[in-house]
């Protein structure tokens, strides 16, 4: 099983000018703890929207790599987005799902991945071009290295240990947005 924070740190250490959007919950807490940066977009609610937002970013900035940090519960709320992602087929998109098989922040209720649902197979069935399922840190690191060197879209399904943190990213939505857009050099 993969240590979520260690896996997030491995990713963050590789980042240069990538756009990163992180789902509510542990995905964004671990991203912030691993390294805050202006091009991190933290979602404070909107469960399930990280993947759709990442697709929009990838469409707007085809020259930049876009990374979605998702959770199993969040993705289960928007499984249709995988079909949309596959249809659009953006080569600059890496979609990582941290699967701890539970809604951890609301008390650890099991998600359907604790039973019979395999999100990697769902992504394959949706038609995502490159799907990898990893259960060890070394396999995860190889998957990340490959996704950074070959065209996507990539879907990396990482089975992680349930763990959380009390560290919190900035809470002002407009601060998060303005900092992100200023760094990117764009406006509405």
């Amino acid at each position: 099983m993969i240590d979520h924070l260690e896996a997030t740190r491995y990713l963050v250490n590789r980042l240069t000018d990538e756009l990163v959007v992180a789902s509510l919950g542990n995905a964004k807490y671990a991203l912030f703890q691993s390294g805050d940066r202006a091009l991190n977009f933290y979602l404070w609610n909107s469960m399930g929207m990280a993947c759709s937002m990442g697709l929009g970013m990838a469409m707007a900035r085809p020259e930049r790599r876009v990374i979605i940090l998702d959770g199993d519960g969040a993705l289960l709320m928007n499984l249709g987005s995988l079909a949309t992602e596959a249809m659009r087929n953006p080569p600059n998109l890496i979609h990582i799902v941290w699967d701890n098989r539970q809604y951890q922040l609301t008390g650890g209720q099991p998600t359907s991945t604790a039973y019979r649902t395999d999100l990697a197979r769902v992504a394959e069935g949706a038609g995502i071009a490159n799907v990898v399922r990893v259960e060890s840190l070394s396999a995860y690191q190889r998957a990340i290295d490959k996704a950074f060197s070959q065209p996507g879209p990539w879907f990396i399904h990482a089975l992680v240990e349930a763990a959380t943190t009390h560290v919190r990213p900035p809470k002002s939505p407009t601060f998060i947005k303005h900092r992100f857009m200023t760094e990117l050099g764009v406006s509405h």
């Binding site: 756009l19 959007v21 977009f41 909107s46 399930g48 929207m49 990280a50 993947c51 759709s52 937002m53 990442g54 697709l55 929009g56 970013m57 990838a58 469409m59 707007a60 900035r61 928007n78 249709g80 987005s81 079909a83 949309t84 249809m87 659009r88 947005k177 992100f180 857009m181 990117l184 050099g185 764009v186 406006s187 509405h188």
Partner: peptide, 24 residues
């Protein structure tokens, strides 16, 4: 043109396009 499976997805997609500097 981007067809979606559900309208809620579209809110996320337009927001991603917007913060990326493109209008949808």
């Amino acid at each position: 043109i981007l067809p979606l499976t559900r309208e809620e997805e579209g809110v996320g997609v337009v927001c991603g396009q917007a913060v990326g500097g493109a209008r949808g």
